Amino acid sequence: MTETNIEALVRSLVTPLLKHPDDLTIHQTTDDRFDRYVVDVHPSDVGRLIGRQGHVASALRTVVEGARPRRSNSKKVRLLINDHRH
């Protein structure tokens, strides 16, 4: 089985939602429990990425978590959206 490239998956899911896709950056950090992917977008696209009551963000997190390998030693995946308002 091939391992999924999580960053490419996030990029392919997020890009169609954005009005400014050129401003999309994804940073990965890793610790002993999690692989974190921080998504930075243009400030006017943050709401489009989060969605009403967080439904879009929740759906993105569900897909990304489902794509991670199910090995016993694999880390959990965290998808964080950088909200420029805070």
Rank of each mutant, 00 (worst) to 15 (best):
D32E: 15
D32Q: 12
P21Q: 10
I26W: 11
T4Y: 00
V38T: 15
H55L: 07
Y37A: 04
T2H: 10
T62C: 07
R68N: 04
T15I: 06
K75W: 04
S74T: 11
K76P: 00
L24H: 02
N5C: 09
T15A: 11
K19Q: 11
S58C: 04
R70I: 10
D45R: 04
R85L: 14
N82P: 06
E3I: 14
D31Q: 08
R48E: 12
Q53K: 14
L24N: 06
E65S: 12
Y37I: 01
H42R: 11
V10R: 04
V63T: 14
D23A: 09
P21T: 11
R61S: 06
P16R: 11
R85E: 12
V77Q: 07
H84R: 14
M1W: 09
N82G: 02
N82Y: 09
T4N: 02
R48W: 08
L49P: 02
G54K: 05
R36N: 13
K19N: 13
R85Q: 13
H20W: 00
D23K: 12
R68K: 15
R11E: 07
D22E: 15
V56F: 00
V64A: 03
D23Q: 15
S72T: 11
S12T: 08
D31I: 04
L24W: 08
V63N: 03
E3N: 15
L79E: 02
L49D: 04
L18P: 08
S72H: 12
V10P: 05
I50T: 06
M1Q: 13
L49S: 03
L18Y: 06
R78M: 07
I26G: 10
A59R: 00
L17F: 08
M1Y: 07
I50Y: 02
F34P: 01
D31Y: 12
R11Y: 08
A8H: 09
V10H: 05
L9C: 07
D83R: 09
E7G: 01
A67S: 13
L79W: 01
S12L: 01
T4D: 00
S12K: 05
E65T: 09
V64W: 01
T4M: 03
P43D: 07
E7Q: 15
D40A: 14
L24F: 05
I50Q: 06
S74C: 04
D22M: 08
P16Q: 09
V64D: 04
I6A: 03
V63R: 00
K76D: 14
A59V: 00
A8D: 15
T2R: 10
Y37H: 08
V56H: 05
I81T: 02
D35C: 11
R70G: 15
V41H: 06
D22P: 02
L24T: 05
R52G: 03
P43H: 07
R52C: 00
D40G: 07
V41M: 10
F34M: 03
R71L: 12
G54S: 05
R68F: 10
R78H: 11
S74L: 03
